[in-house]
Design a protein around this nucleic acid. Structure first.
Lengths: 336, 336
DNA sequence: CTGAAAGCGCTTACAG
DNA sequence: CTGAAAGCGCTTACAG
């Protein structure tokens, strides 16, 4: 047989109807085990596989999940954020565990933006992994009418989109509790709380909660827009030192800022972790290699994938979990 | 209109036949511009998108490329090799540039192995990104009859499978030329040349070529199987030092071995890059953070994706390019 | 428990 | 340049 075998070929060989082949292969309860065995054998013998194009057309659903990773224009595969890759892997793994295939797309430029996977019969739902920095992408995806579309976002700056996020408040609390346990007396928060990156503000809130719970006054070292997060962190720390400092520990809104802070402190001859402790958020690969190595808090990537996929398909449930648990990794920058 | 609009709905609204809608939307040359404009407008107005399930069923092809990333059993998203992720991104980007969607799957355990994407009508071809270490996966994929299947492999230990690889010989030559240019006089090769990781032997051959071209005698410091590549590298360097050393530079078959070598040299008080220069292959993230930072050679990830996709669809062409160009990154470990 | 028949929504020869 | 008709290969009511 030269052409691709069809279910009719299997039916003939097994001596049953096409309907029976379909039911047997789909695992229908109604089929006799003897019949099923005959069908499976015939299918195996002629190398038959169900053609999913036809099956999906008839069935209506696709068994596929689309995943869009938003990048910055001009970024090559090597430039893409390692955390985005991890999240992608995590979503694919979670989808696979639930029996879904994953259609993956990296989107950077305006002309590439595309979210109509359901309309095209490509997928039953969409997970968007974003970085706040590509504003045009967020505008595009926000513009997709939500009605009749299953979609969930990671990293959305918009609260009105269906999102899954790190438990940022817990992160803020964890940081403070750790710093106090290490003997620091006055941890400050380094970051911008009015940033479109709303999650920074959430971390700040958690920080404030824990400070007040410990009877301490929150203290904000504000950053301002810079070319990179590192520079923002470094500049803010320098300004803070110029004003006389005052805190003995820093919880930075993200690792990149924390790394910048580390750099600035080193420049100014402030000992870390001796005089000042530093903690960040993200667990970037660079955190492991900084000098001193950087204490940090990060979401569990495996949990992130599961929550994203579950949020997509349990949207009807009351209170689907949307906060990814975070955990603390203690390293040199707070080890005194 | 509550139900999903079809091409018949568009036809009615534009006052043309279903055939014309199909042709207009597919960009057929034969359609009048005026007609096409009417059709496009009607489609836009009712929010119509071509149902790809039906289109593909009728057309026969899928416009999709399957990508399988082989992992190790038990690996979570966070454990997967960053280079595999980069390669995945690179393949997706290259596929997208050529108008293909990408169906991505991470496969680790024996029960999960699956390569019948074409038979299922899921894809027109398959790219497998492997790591030599998952032998069971290679056995599975090697077992898929090659006939009638479009498939190309990265990292295959088997030469009889359709592969794309780094230009390993060029890497060996580059390493030697760089080391000699830095004033080293006797570079040796650190690695196992009979490893199932055939690419190590290729790097050794390139090394030998360049050594002989410079009138020097190749010198192999052999590694033996260890728990990790780092340990293999460290153990081999220690054994070599015990025997009196003799070389003044090391080109290691991979960065992990080079990092182990760096560690062993530090233990023994041998100065790098002063007394001995060290270069590796891969450009692992850790190479940037080693002490001293590690000079290394690596394939261009963007090129890798392009070559993989092209190898898939130009299999008929004579001499498709299958060697990914490599480049040298000079860092501290050879900077003297 | 199994079969005959309809139909999912397209694309593409075949006519004109 | 456009239309009427067939058919891609399944799944699923509907009968029996």
């Amino acid at each position: 047989m030269k052409r691709r075998p069809t279910s009719i070929d299997v039916a003939e060989r097994a001596g049953v109807s096409q309907s029976t082949v379909s039911r047997a292969l789909a695992g229908s309860e109604v089929i006799t085990e003897a019949t099923r065995a005959r069908v499976l054998r015939a299918a195996e013998e002629i190398g038959y596989f169900v053609d999913e194009r036809a099956a999906r057309l008839r069935r209506g659903s696709t068994g596929t999940l689309a995943v869009v990773v938003i990048c910055r224009p001009g970024e090559s595969a090597a430039d893409i954020n390692p955390f985005s890759y991890m999240l992608l892997g995590s979503v694919c793994l979670a989808a696979s565990e639930r029996g879904f295939e994953t259609l993956v797309s990296f989107q950077a430029r305006e002309e590439q933006f595309f979210g109509h996977y359901e309309e095209r019969g490509w997928a039953d739902g969409l997970v968007v992994i974003g970085t706040t920095t590509n504003r045009a992408a967020w505008d595009y995806f926000r513009g997709l009418e939500k009605a009749e579309r299953r979609v969930v976002y990671w990293g959305s700056p918009f609260d009105d989109l269906e999102w899954v996020r790190s438990d940022n408040r817990a992160a803020g609390r964890l940081a403070v509790e750790h710093l106090l346990a290490q003997g620091y007396r006055a941890p400050c928060f380094l970051g911008a709380i009015d940033s479109p990156q709303h999650q920074f503000a959430e971390r700040y809130e958690g920080y404030c909660d824990a400070m007040r719970a410990a009877g301490l006054e929150p203290c904000l070292v504000p950053t301002r827009d810079g070319a990179t997060r590192e520079e923002e962190g470094a500049a803010a720390v320098e300004a803070w030192l110029d004003q006389g400092g005052g805190a003995d520990a820093i919880f930075a809104a993200c690792d990149a800022m924390a790394l910048g802070a580390l750099e600035a402190l080193k420049q100014r001859g402030v000992a870390v972790p001796g005089e000042v402790g530093v903690a960040g958020f993200d667990d970037l690969p660079a955190a492991r290699f900084a000098q001193p190595t950087l204490t940090t808090i990060a979401p569990d990537p495996a949990a992130a994938g599961s929550l994203l996929v579950d949020a997509l398909f349990n949207a009807g449930d009351d209170a689907p979990l949307r906060r990814v648990p975070v955990s603390l990794t203690v390293r040199g920058s707070t080890a005194r």
